[in-house]
Simulated scan of single mutants.
Amino acid sequence: MLAIVESINSCLKISNPVTFIQGALPKILDLEKTCDEMFWRSTNLLRETIEILCDKIKEIPGITCPIKPEASLFVMVKLDVSLLEDIDDDIDFCVKLAKEESVIGLPGCIVGLKNWLPISFATDPKYLED
């Protein structure tokens, strides 16, 4: 299990965005050339998706979202493993989630937060509903 954690951790040290993103950023960040509507739509979509995610998390026993993010693309959720059947910790949760639901998660212990999980909400709202 330690080898898996070390492997994932080594991937997190990559800090440079891919080349096409690097090329697009100056134009995206140039407020005179970027349409206000694009920012408005993106902001509203993120507000909608965080609401969906936080509402769905409230329905799941053993998982809580103590702080709703205001300027992020992911939320950190806390696992209460005492309420989760046959789950020992965040690594065990992520392994079983991958095996049973084909959903890949990053255990919080990778970034020093045992029994926490980051969940991205930067996706289409219909996927969060699932």
Rank of each mutant, 00 (worst) to 15 (best):
L83F: 09
P118G: 08
D36C: 10
R47Y: 04
S7Q: 11
K33E: 15
D55P: 05
D36S: 14
C109M: 06
R41F: 09
D36L: 14
L73A: 11
T64C: 10
I110S: 01
L29G: 15
L25F: 08
L113R: 14
G23Y: 15
N44G: 11
C54V: 05
D90V: 03
K99W: 09
S10G: 08
S82P: 00
K126F: 03
A3V: 05
L84A: 08
I57Y: 00
S82V: 02
C11L: 15
E32Y: 14
N44D: 10
D124H: 08
K99M: 14
K13V: 01
A122E: 02
C65H: 06
E48C: 12
D86F: 09
V77S: 07
D30H: 01
D90I: 02
G62A: 11
F121E: 03
M1Q: 13
T19N: 14
T64K: 09
S72H: 10
C94R: 06
A71M: 04
P118L: 03
I28S: 12
D89H: 11
D80K: 06
I110E: 00
C109T: 03
L12V: 04
P61S: 04
L79R: 04
L2N: 15
D124N: 07
P107N: 01
L2I: 09
E129R: 09
I60Q: 07
P118C: 07
I110K: 03
K58S: 04
D92I: 03
D30V: 03
P118K: 09
P118S: 03
T49N: 07
K96G: 02
R47L: 00
G108K: 00
I21V: 08
V103K: 11
L113M: 13
A122D: 06
Y127M: 14
C65G: 03
I57E: 03
D92L: 03
W116M: 00
I104E: 08
S82T: 05
E59D: 14
F121C: 06
F39R: 13
L73Q: 15
D89T: 10
L73P: 06
K126V: 04
S102Y: 02
N9D: 12
F121G: 01
C11A: 13
I28M: 12
L106M: 11
L45P: 06
A24M: 05
E48A: 08
D86R: 15
R41G: 12
V111C: 12
W116N: 00
I87E: 02
V111L: 14
C65D: 02
L79D: 01
L2Y: 09
W116D: 01
C35S: 06
S15N: 11
C109L: 09
Q22K: 15
S82D: 09
V18A: 11
L2D: 12
S10H: 11
E32S: 14
S120M: 11
E70I: 07
L25P: 10
P107I: 02
L45F: 10
G112T: 05
P26I: 01
V77K: 05
I50R: 05
Y127H: 15
D92R: 03
K114W: 07
L46S: 02
S82K: 04
